[in-house]
């Protein structure tokens, strides 16, 4: 294989990308909804919601993983019905790894989407209203396109961070090669294995390159979008 990676190492890279992508897919729509509530909502408990969303940033990832285990374990209050009624098991699966990653990166994506939303001039939405656009219409045709730089920034940041999520994944989904062993978990395993220094270095390099590449890509796209929106 190219770049001198072994098939097992490639598997970890592919899995990391898959888990990160799925985590973004899980969290994007709820993040837009929550960002909307936080930026525009006027309801009691808004500060509580704000704090709750940001919890994964301050709570140790292992604790988040443990919490997920309690909730989504096959005997947990959510995991039990999922398992008994639908035959869905999240612990120790790729889906579980994606869920843990989604929870961890949720505050990042909410924050970026919210910044994007707050950059939208409410005057433009008011203009759309006076031109006959109802709530859903103007959200889709005005607000969403104008906040898209924020959504994009959130997506890329969450994806890049998701590639490297460690604590929550290993606690909730364990470290199963081909199933839940993402890049950081593979690097960790390599460092624990005698003679694994080479593999650790290669994987670390890949991890680093993916992160930097993602950020550069995000920057390029963000510039294009801002030009597209006429913000210079």
């Amino acid at each position: 294989m190219t770049a001198g990676l072994s098939p097992e190492e490639w598997q970890a890279v592919r899995l990391s990308v898959e888990v990160a992508a799925r985590s973004v897919a899980i969290s994007l729509l709820p993040a837009i909804a929550v960002a909307w509530l936080l930026a525009r909502g006027r309801f009691p408990g808004r500060m509580l919601l704000d704090a709750l969303v940001h919890l994964p940033l301050v709570v140790p990832p292992v604790v988040v993983g443990w919490g997920l285990l309690m909730l989504f374990g096959i005997r947990g209050p959510i995991g039990a019905p999922l398992h008994d009624w639908f035959g869905i098991r999240l612990v120790f699966t790729t889906e579980g790894a994606a869920l843990a990653t989604a929870v961890m990166s949720f505050p990042l994506i909410v924050r970026a989407v919210r910044l994007g939303l707050e950059a939208v001039d409410p005057g433009l939405e008011a203009a759309a209203r006076t031109l006959g656009a109802g709530p859903v219409d103007r959200f889709v045709t005005v607000t969403l396109p104008l906040m898209s730089p924020g959504i994009l920034a959130g997506t890329v940041t969450a994806f890049a961070a998701g590639l490297g999520e460690f604590g929550a994944v290993i606690t909730f989904a364990s470290n199963i090669p081909g199933e839940t062993q993402t890049l950081p978990l593979a690097i960790y395993s390599a460092t624990q294995t005698p003679g694994g220094e080479g593999a650790a270095a290669r994987l670390a390099f890949v991890s680093f390159s993916l992160a930097v590449g993602g950020l550069l890509l995000a920057e390029v796209i963000a510039r294009r979008m801002h030009r597209w929106l006429g913000r210079g």
Binding site: G123, L124, T130, L131, G132, T141, V142, L229, R231
Partner: peptide
Amino acid sequence: PPERRRCAVVFQDARLFPHLSVESNLRYG
């Protein structure tokens, strides 16, 4: 609600939609 009043407004600051072409702006209403 404003969208059902059929009162079009010309604002001091134009408020054209920056992501739409001039033609799409004109056709919005």
